[in-house]
Protein backbone atom coordinates (compact mmCIF):
# COMPACT_ATOMS: atom_id res chain seq x y z
CA UNK A 1 0.00 0.00 0.00
CA UNK A 2 1.26 3.47 -0.88
CA UNK A 3 2.39 6.01 1.64
CA UNK A 4 0.29 9.08 2.16
CA UNK A 5 2.61 11.26 0.05
CA UNK A 6 2.73 8.71 -2.74
CA UNK A 7 -1.06 8.49 -2.69
CA UNK A 8 -1.36 12.27 -2.96
CA UNK A 9 1.14 12.24 -5.81
CA UNK A 10 -0.91 9.51 -7.52
CA UNK A 11 -3.99 11.75 -7.28
CA UNK A 12 -2.12 14.70 -8.79
CA UNK A 13 -0.74 12.55 -11.62
CA UNK A 14 -4.19 11.25 -12.38
CA UNK A 15 -5.58 14.77 -12.34
CA UNK A 16 -2.92 15.96 -14.80
CA UNK A 17 -3.55 12.98 -17.05
CA UNK A 18 -7.30 13.55 -16.92
CA UNK A 19 -7.02 17.23 -17.81
CA UNK A 20 -4.64 16.46 -20.69
CA UNK A 21 -6.95 13.75 -21.97
CA UNK A 22 -9.93 16.07 -21.75
CA UNK A 23 -8.07 18.72 -23.77
CA UNK A 24 -7.09 16.18 -26.42
CA UNK A 25 -10.63 14.84 -26.59
CA UNK A 26 -12.04 18.32 -27.03
CA UNK A 27 -9.64 18.96 -29.91
CA UNK A 28 -10.64 15.67 -31.47
CA UNK A 29 -14.30 16.51 -31.08
CA UNK A 30 -13.73 19.96 -32.60
CA UNK A 31 -11.80 18.46 -35.51
CA UNK A 32 -14.45 15.81 -36.01
CA UNK A 33 -17.22 18.41 -35.95
CA UNK A 34 -15.29 20.54 -38.45
CA UNK A 35 -14.84 17.58 -40.75
CA UNK A 36 -18.49 16.63 -40.49
CA UNK A 37 -19.55 20.23 -41.18
CA UNK A 38 -17.20 20.48 -44.19
CA UNK A 39 -18.54 17.23 -45.58
CA UNK A 40 -22.10 18.41 -45.01
CA UNK A 41 -21.43 21.73 -46.79
CA UNK A 42 -19.76 20.04 -49.75
CA UNK A 43 -22.54 17.48 -49.93
CA UNK A 44 -25.16 20.23 -49.83
CA UNK A 45 -23.43 22.14 -52.60
CA UNK A 46 -23.04 19.06 -54.72
CA UNK A 47 -26.62 17.97 -54.19
CA UNK A 48 -28.06 21.41 -54.82
CA UNK A 49 -25.94 22.04 -57.89
CA UNK A 50 -25.04 25.51 -56.64
CA UNK A 51 -21.29 25.85 -56.64
CA UNK A 52 -21.12 29.02 -54.66
CA UNK A 53 -21.54 31.73 -57.20
CA UNK A 54 -24.32 33.13 -59.28
CA UNK A 55 -23.71 33.10 -62.98
CA UNK A 56 -23.65 36.53 -64.63
CA UNK A 57 -27.03 37.72 -65.70
CA UNK A 58 -25.80 39.22 -68.92
CA UNK A 59 -23.82 37.35 -71.44
CA UNK A 60 -20.70 38.83 -72.85
CA UNK A 61 -21.30 40.07 -76.30
CA UNK A 62 -24.90 41.12 -76.23
CA UNK A 63 -25.09 44.54 -74.78
CA UNK A 64 -22.88 44.37 -71.77
CA UNK A 65 -19.51 45.99 -71.63
CA UNK A 66 -16.40 45.51 -69.63
CA UNK A 67 -14.41 48.45 -68.45
CA UNK A 68 -15.05 51.97 -69.51
CA UNK A 69 -17.14 54.46 -67.66
CA UNK A 70 -20.12 54.94 -69.85
CA UNK A 71 -22.49 53.03 -71.95
CA UNK A 72 -21.35 54.72 -75.08
CA UNK A 73 -17.61 55.00 -74.93
CA UNK A 74 -14.80 55.35 -72.58
CA UNK A 75 -11.13 54.82 -72.43
CA UNK A 76 -10.20 51.24 -72.06
CA UNK A 77 -13.70 50.02 -72.69
CA UNK A 78 -14.39 46.94 -74.65
CA UNK A 79 -17.87 46.87 -75.91
CA UNK A 80 -19.73 44.14 -77.59
CA UNK A 81 -22.87 46.08 -78.30
CA UNK A 82 -22.55 45.62 -81.97
CA UNK A 83 -24.67 47.09 -84.66
CA UNK A 84 -27.26 45.02 -86.35
CA UNK A 85 -24.68 43.81 -88.72
CA UNK A 86 -22.56 42.50 -85.90
CA UNK A 87 -19.58 44.79 -85.77
CA UNK A 88 -17.42 44.16 -82.78
CA UNK A 89 -16.07 47.37 -81.37
CA UNK A 90 -12.99 47.69 -79.31
CA UNK A 91 -11.67 50.60 -77.32
CA UNK A 92 -8.31 51.31 -75.91
CA UNK A 93 -6.69 54.32 -74.36
CA UNK A 94 -5.43 55.72 -77.60
CA UNK A 95 -8.33 54.97 -79.87
CA UNK A 96 -11.96 54.24 -79.60
CA UNK A 97 -14.77 53.56 -81.92
CA UNK A 98 -18.15 54.87 -82.60
CA UNK A 99 -20.86 53.16 -80.65
CA UNK A 100 -23.34 53.88 -83.32
CA UNK A 101 -24.35 51.64 -86.16
CA UNK A 102 -21.64 51.12 -88.67
CA UNK A 103 -21.43 48.84 -91.59
CA UNK A 104 -19.98 45.45 -90.98
CA UNK A 105 -16.97 46.09 -93.14
CA UNK A 106 -16.06 49.36 -91.49
CA UNK A 107 -14.49 50.46 -88.34
CA UNK A 108 -14.71 53.96 -87.05
CA UNK A 109 -11.68 55.33 -85.30
CA UNK A 110 -11.76 58.47 -83.27
CA UNK A 111 -10.19 59.93 -80.20
CA UNK A 112 -10.97 59.32 -76.62
CA UNK A 113 -14.23 61.16 -76.39
CA UNK A 114 -17.78 60.25 -76.85
CA UNK A 115 -18.76 61.45 -80.27
CA UNK A 116 -17.52 61.13 -83.75
CA UNK A 117 -17.53 64.60 -85.07
CA UNK A 118 -16.02 66.46 -82.19
CA UNK A 119 -13.49 63.84 -81.48
CA UNK A 120 -12.63 63.36 -85.05
CA UNK A 121 -11.69 66.94 -85.57
CA UNK A 122 -10.73 68.17 -82.16
CA UNK A 123 -9.18 64.99 -81.06
CA UNK A 124 -6.34 65.36 -78.62
CA UNK A 125 -4.97 61.92 -79.22
CA UNK A 126 -3.19 63.12 -82.29
CA UNK A 127 -3.22 59.80 -84.01
CA UNK A 128 -6.15 60.36 -86.29
CA UNK A 129 -6.60 62.44 -89.38
CA UNK A 130 -9.86 63.98 -90.31
CA UNK A 131 -10.17 64.84 -93.91
CA UNK A 132 -12.44 64.75 -96.81
CA UNK A 133 -11.31 63.24 -100.02
CA UNK A 134 -12.84 62.20 -103.24
CA UNK A 135 -12.98 58.60 -104.22
CA UNK A 136 -14.43 58.03 -107.63
CA UNK A 137 -15.90 61.50 -107.51
CA UNK A 138 -17.61 60.97 -104.16
CA UNK A 139 -16.70 62.64 -100.88
CA UNK A 140 -15.33 60.38 -98.23
CA UNK A 141 -14.92 61.48 -94.65
CA UNK A 142 -12.09 59.29 -93.73
CA UNK A 143 -12.26 60.12 -90.07
CA UNK A 144 -15.70 58.76 -89.74
CA UNK A 145 -15.65 55.81 -92.04
CA UNK A 146 -12.27 54.32 -92.02
CA UNK A 147 -12.44 50.95 -93.68
CA UNK A 148 -10.96 47.97 -91.95
CA UNK A 149 -8.84 47.20 -94.93
CA UNK A 150 -6.93 50.40 -95.56
CA UNK A 151 -5.18 48.98 -98.60
CA UNK A 152 -8.41 48.59 -100.49
CA UNK A 153 -10.09 51.92 -101.25
CA UNK A 154 -13.08 50.09 -102.61
CA UNK A 155 -14.04 49.36 -99.10
CA UNK A 156 -14.77 53.01 -98.38
CA UNK A 157 -18.35 53.76 -97.64
CA UNK A 158 -20.14 55.43 -100.47
CA UNK A 159 -22.87 57.96 -99.68
CA UNK A 160 -26.34 56.97 -100.73
CA UNK A 161 -27.39 60.58 -101.29
CA UNK A 162 -25.88 64.02 -101.10
CA UNK A 163 -28.20 66.97 -100.66
CA UNK A 164 -27.12 70.58 -100.85
CA UNK A 165 -29.28 73.28 -99.36
CA UNK A 166 -28.88 76.98 -99.90
CA UNK A 167 -28.89 79.43 -97.03
CA UNK A 168 -31.60 78.51 -94.63
CA UNK A 169 -32.34 75.08 -93.21
CA UNK A 170 -35.68 74.43 -94.82
CA UNK A 171 -35.51 71.11 -96.61
CA UNK A 172 -37.83 72.44 -99.27
CA UNK A 173 -35.05 74.70 -100.48
CA UNK A 174 -32.95 71.88 -101.87
CA UNK A 175 -30.68 73.22 -104.56
CA UNK A 176 -28.94 70.05 -105.57
CA UNK A 177 -29.35 66.34 -104.96
CA UNK A 178 -27.10 63.57 -106.15
CA UNK A 179 -29.87 61.75 -107.91
CA UNK A 180 -30.53 64.74 -110.20
CA UNK A 181 -29.42 64.45 -113.76
CA UNK A 182 -26.44 66.72 -113.48
CA UNK A 183 -26.07 66.11 -109.81
CA UNK A 184 -23.02 63.85 -109.79
CA UNK A 185 -20.96 66.20 -111.89
CA UNK A 186 -21.80 69.22 -109.78
CA UNK A 187 -21.35 67.35 -106.59
CA UNK A 188 -17.96 66.16 -107.72
CA UNK A 189 -17.10 69.76 -108.53
CA UNK A 190 -18.41 70.81 -105.13
CA UNK A 191 -16.29 68.24 -103.39
CA UNK A 192 -13.23 69.31 -105.32
CA UNK A 193 -13.88 72.86 -104.27
CA UNK A 194 -14.38 71.74 -100.74
CA UNK A 195 -11.20 69.78 -100.74
CA UNK A 196 -9.37 72.81 -102.07
CA UNK A 197 -10.26 74.59 -98.88
CA UNK A 198 -7.98 72.28 -96.97
CA UNK A 199 -7.99 69.42 -94.59
CA UNK A 200 -10.02 69.23 -91.49
CA UNK A 201 -7.65 70.01 -88.76
CA UNK A 202 -7.05 68.39 -85.45
CA UNK A 203 -7.93 69.93 -82.16
CA UNK A 204 -9.99 72.73 -83.53
CA UNK A 205 -12.93 73.98 -81.55
CA UNK A 206 -15.92 75.63 -83.19
CA UNK A 207 -15.70 79.34 -82.28
CA UNK A 208 -18.83 81.13 -80.99
CA UNK A 209 -18.57 83.49 -83.93
CA UNK A 210 -19.43 80.58 -86.23
CA UNK A 211 -22.87 80.31 -84.78
CA UNK A 212 -23.45 84.04 -85.06
CA UNK A 213 -22.56 84.18 -88.75
CA UNK A 214 -25.10 83.71 -91.54
CA UNK A 215 -25.36 80.25 -92.98
CA UNK A 216 -24.27 80.15 -96.59
CA UNK A 217 -24.99 76.57 -97.34
CA UNK A 218 -25.82 73.22 -95.75
CA UNK A 219 -24.77 69.88 -97.22
CA UNK A 220 -26.12 66.55 -96.06
CA UNK A 221 -24.27 63.40 -96.98
CA UNK A 222 -26.17 60.23 -96.16
CA UNK A 223 -24.29 57.00 -95.76
CA UNK A 224 -25.66 53.49 -95.48
CA UNK A 225 -26.64 52.69 -91.95
CA UNK A 226 -28.59 55.88 -91.47
CA UNK A 227 -25.61 58.05 -90.68
CA UNK A 228 -25.81 61.54 -92.00
CA UNK A 229 -22.91 63.91 -92.05
CA UNK A 230 -23.81 67.53 -92.32
CA UNK A 231 -21.59 70.40 -93.39
CA UNK A 232 -22.67 73.88 -92.45
CA UNK A 233 -20.83 76.61 -94.22
CA UNK A 234 -20.77 80.17 -92.93
CA UNK A 235 -18.48 83.12 -93.51
CA UNK A 236 -16.53 81.94 -90.46
CA UNK A 237 -15.77 78.45 -91.64
CA UNK A 238 -17.16 75.00 -92.19
CA UNK A 239 -18.57 72.93 -89.40
CA UNK A 240 -18.86 69.22 -89.91
CA UNK A 241 -21.28 67.28 -87.84
CA UNK A 242 -23.02 64.01 -87.64
CA UNK A 243 -25.67 62.81 -85.28
CA UNK A 244 -23.22 62.66 -82.46
CA UNK A 245 -21.19 65.79 -82.58
CA UNK A 246 -19.49 68.55 -84.44
CA UNK A 247 -16.20 69.20 -86.09
CA UNK A 248 -14.85 72.45 -87.47
CA UNK A 249 -12.83 73.56 -90.41
CA UNK A 250 -11.30 77.01 -90.55
CA UNK A 251 -11.00 78.45 -93.98
CA UNK A 252 -9.43 81.61 -95.22
CA UNK A 253 -11.65 84.46 -96.50
CA UNK A 254 -10.32 83.94 -100.04
CA UNK A 255 -11.17 80.25 -99.99
CA UNK A 256 -14.52 81.03 -98.47
CA UNK A 257 -15.28 83.44 -101.30
CA UNK A 258 -14.43 80.79 -103.87
CA UNK A 259 -16.69 78.33 -102.15
CA UNK A 260 -19.47 80.92 -101.86
CA UNK A 261 -19.25 81.63 -105.55
CA UNK A 262 -19.51 77.95 -106.33
CA UNK A 263 -22.51 77.47 -104.09
CA UNK A 264 -24.13 80.43 -105.82
CA UNK A 265 -23.53 78.79 -109.17
CA UNK A 266 -25.42 75.70 -108.02
CA UNK A 267 -28.54 77.63 -107.23
Amino acid sequence: MRSEEAFLQLIRDKETEYLYQRRVNRKRITAACGTVCAIAVVATILLSGNFGFTPPTGDFGSGGHIGGTSDAMGEGAIRSEAADDGVFEQYDSSSSVNQNEVASDQMCVSGSGTTIGTEAISSTSGNTTSRVELVEGRPIFEQIFLPKDHSNRDNYAIPSTITIYPAGEDASDICLKSDEADGMEKITAFCERLLAVGELGEGREIPPSFWNADLLCKVEICYPGEITVTLMITAEGIALSDDLGMGYLVISPKELQMLDDFIGSLQ
Binding site: L10, K14, Y18
Partner: peptide, 27 residues
Amino acid sequence: IFFLNRYVRNISSAEDIAADVFVELLV
Protein backbone atom coordinates in the same frame (compact mmCIF):
# COMPACT_ATOMS: atom_id res chain seq x y z
CA ILE B 1 -9.83 2.07 0.36
CA PHE B 2 -11.11 -0.32 2.99
CA PHE B 3 -14.65 0.13 1.75
CA LEU B 4 -13.69 -0.29 -1.89
CA ASN B 5 -11.83 -3.44 -1.01
CA ARG B 6 -15.19 -4.96 -0.07
CA TYR B 7 -16.02 -4.84 -3.75
CA VAL B 8 -12.76 -5.42 -5.55
CA ARG B 9 -10.97 -7.50 -2.94
CA ASN B 10 -7.65 -6.19 -4.02
CA ILE B 11 -5.94 -3.46 -2.06
CA SER B 12 -3.96 -2.08 -5.01
CA SER B 13 -7.07 -1.84 -7.15
CA ALA B 14 -9.01 -0.33 -4.27
CA GLU B 15 -6.25 2.23 -3.78
CA ASP B 16 -6.27 3.07 -7.46
CA ILE B 17 -10.03 3.50 -7.47
CA ALA B 18 -9.81 5.64 -4.33
CA ALA B 19 -7.35 7.92 -6.09
CA ASP B 20 -9.83 8.22 -8.98
CA VAL B 21 -12.53 9.18 -6.50
CA PHE B 22 -10.40 12.01 -5.13
CA VAL B 23 -9.53 13.12 -8.67
CA GLU B 24 -13.26 13.39 -9.28
CA LEU B 25 -13.37 15.97 -6.51
CA LEU B 26 -10.59 17.91 -8.23
CA VAL B 27 -11.82 17.94 -11.81
